[in-house]
Simulated scan of single mutants.
Amino acid sequence: MRRSVALAVATTAAVTSAVLGNAPSASADLVTYCIGTGGAVTVPNDLYVPAGESCALTGTIITGNVSVAAGANLVVTGGRVDGQVSIASNGYLDAKRSTVRGEITVASGGYGVYLQTAESGSVTVRAKGSATIDSFLFAEDASITGSVNAQAGEVRLDAGTELTGSLSTTGTYYTDLHDSFVDGTLSVLNSSTGSVICGSAVRGRSTFAGNLGGVQLGPDGALDTCASGGYFGADVSITNTTGTVTVGDSIIDGKLTVQRNTPVARVAATNRIRGGVVGDPAPAAARSSAPAAAPRGERGEDRAEDRRASAVSEAVAAGDAGL
């Protein structure tokens, strides 16, 4: 069985660059490679997971930045990263009961990020471009200090996730909020299967424009199962949507604008909209007759669980990383 390797490189910046290639720069030019498993130790510098390898850490503290190379996996349980995390093409980050104090950045074609009962800084998901892999960001009962900006893949904040900044997505597969809170603004543009906001609160202005597949605020829509409506602390605008638009059981502390949607939006009588409705909604209805689809997050969550299981298995097989 191949044993894991942990390398510490301390040298001049020029030599470090030549030896490590795309590995991250570090304080005092020190980088720790991780292949395999690690426990409750402190890594006093940057950490690098080499291309195609897996690193599974439990209770580990990393004082520097983390780089997950192409096709690599990093699973952190009960740990902490004091710096930033960068994820390359087909790279994966799984953080459970863990803290990432810096920003998380997913490169074009990155596999994805799964935050479960975790804390992190801002999250950026780059546009897919010519990559064949479409990324995802799933957050369950997570706390994100900063904003989320995604330009690809599946985005779902769920189960009590809190975001101190704004959520802005363009060209995602879908952008959904379930039982979550956004303290800033919400912007969902050009999503290929639309957006669902269920049982969530958004303090700032909410904008949905150019989405395909529809927009569903509250229950009784065609996109996803949903138990309750939401709260919107400012104006809500839903425009240029292709697909069913439904707004139900929601409180909007501003005006609702629904214009140039095909078909026209259905705004239920169960809403409380302080600033009134502007645009061309269909006649109000207490309930929509559209059948609800299966939960949209199941496909992505399966991807995350499968990748995590595979990563942990590979890391265990590689043995002790010797951190």
Rank of each mutant, 00 (worst) to 15 (best):
A23V: 04
S120C: 03
Q259A: 13
R205D: 15
E301A: 07
T172Y: 00
L167M: 03
L223I: 12
N271W: 08
A286C: 13
A127V: 08
G199C: 07
G165A: 10
A286Y: 15
I252A: 07
P295H: 06
N22T: 14
V66P: 10
G276S: 11
S168F: 00
V258W: 07
I61K: 15
G59M: 10
T12I: 15
S122C: 13
P24W: 04
L177N: 03
P263G: 11
K96M: 12
S310W: 08
G59S: 12
Q259F: 04
Y48A: 00
L323Y: 06
A40G: 03
G165V: 06
L93V: 01
A152P: 06
A309D: 10
R272Q: 14
R299W: 11
V66K: 03
E154A: 04
T132K: 14
T63C: 12
F208V: 00
G21W: 11
A293W: 03
L186F: 03
V113P: 05
A131E: 10
N90W: 04
T77I: 08
A284Q: 05
T241E: 01
Y33A: 07
L323P: 04
N45L: 15
N240M: 07
S4T: 14
L177I: 03
V182N: 02
V236T: 01
T161K: 02
M1I: 14
G171C: 05
A285K: 13
V9P: 05
R266N: 11
L223F: 04
F136R: 00
L212R: 09
Y111S: 15
G204M: 04
D183W: 06
I144Q: 01
F232E: 11
V68S: 06
P281S: 14
T246S: 12
K96E: 09
E298H: 05
A150I: 00
I87E: 15
V5L: 11
A56V: 07
L115P: 00
E298M: 06
I35P: 05
T63G: 12
D82Y: 12
V9Y: 10
G184Y: 06
G102R: 03
A26W: 08
G218M: 08
Q259R: 08
S187R: 00
Y48D: 01
G279N: 02
G102Q: 01
S192P: 02
L256A: 15
D320R: 12
A294F: 14
A227F: 08
A40E: 05
S200D: 06
T63M: 11
A10W: 06
R299V: 07
G52A: 11
G254L: 05
V81A: 02
N73R: 02
A269V: 01
T63P: 15
G276V: 10
T175I: 01
V125E: 01
T37I: 09
A315F: 09
V41S: 12
S166F: 04
V68A: 10
G275K: 06
T244L: 15
Q84S: 11
S192I: 09
T77F: 04
A269W: 01
G160D: 13
L47G: 08
G254C: 02
F181V: 14
D176W: 00
D320P: 10
N90D: 14
R287F: 13
L115R: 01
A209C: 00
A282M: 11
V41N: 09
D302F: 10
